[in-house]
């Protein structure tokens, strides 16, 4: 068991949802709503969609909250470029939306933004030969939900926190 590697527990790339960067937020939503990741007979709704460029290079990822954030009109967002944390620290009174009479139409319009405007860059990756323990450490230390797995510099899959947990469960339960 101690020999388990990232490659053993990862979700192969072809089973994991991904889109090109010019796709819209709407298409990313469709991907999340309809895609199911199936591993070991278990199905789960993806929390993250990977984003690639034309030459199939990994550019970034979008999470549910990135998408939701992308749907908000800009006037409801302060500090837009501050990144992830700002989504939790809303200083604008949400009731302002009533004042500005934001409507569903606005959301539909926002949904047509390219996903590249709301995606996050890939910062942390692991190698296909890295150990399970290394994967746990990367997830914990960097506070991320999933890690792209590379082989020879190319992405071949992802390891999610749930995949790590399943592997650990088999060891300890």
């Amino acid at each position: 068991m101690e020999n388990l590697t990232a490659g053993d527990i990862m979700v192969p790339l072809d089973l994991y949802p991904h889109i090109p960067y010019w796709f819209t937020v709407r298409q990313a939503i469709a991907e999340m709503e309809t895609a199911e990741v199936e591993t070991d007979g278990r199905r789960s709704i993806p929390r993250v969609v990977l984003v690639f460029d034309e030459t199939y290079r990994l550019m970034g990822f979008v999470r549910r909250r990135d998408i939701l954030r992308g749907l908000l009109p800009s006037y409801l967002l302060e500090d837009a470029d501050e990144g992830i944390r700002s989504t939790y620290d809303i200083h604008v009174d949400p009731n302002l939306s009533d004042v500005f009479a934001a409507e569903e139409g606005d959301i539909a319009e926002q949904a047509n933004r390219p996903v590249s405007e709301v995606m996050n860059p890939i910062v942390h990756t692991i190698q296909v030969t890295d150990t399970l323990l290394h994967a746990v450490r990367e997830i914990v230390v960097n506070n991320v939900y999933m890690l792209p797995v590379l082989r020879d510099g190319k992405i071949v899959g992802v390891v999610r926190s749930i995949d790590v947990l399943h592997a650990v469960a088999k060891m300890v339960l």
Binding site: P20, Y21, D53, L150
Partner: peptide, 28 residues
């Protein structure tokens, strides 16, 4: 629409590994 919205460099803080993608970019 053709994707003009190539991401701003700020969103590409990654080390974009040049050998990550498929070979022969020019071909496309």
């Amino acid at each position: 629409k053709w994707p003009f919205a190539y991401p701003e460099p700020a969103r590409l803080r990654v080390d974009r590994r040049s050998d990550q993608g498929l070979p022969g970019e020019a071909q496309f």
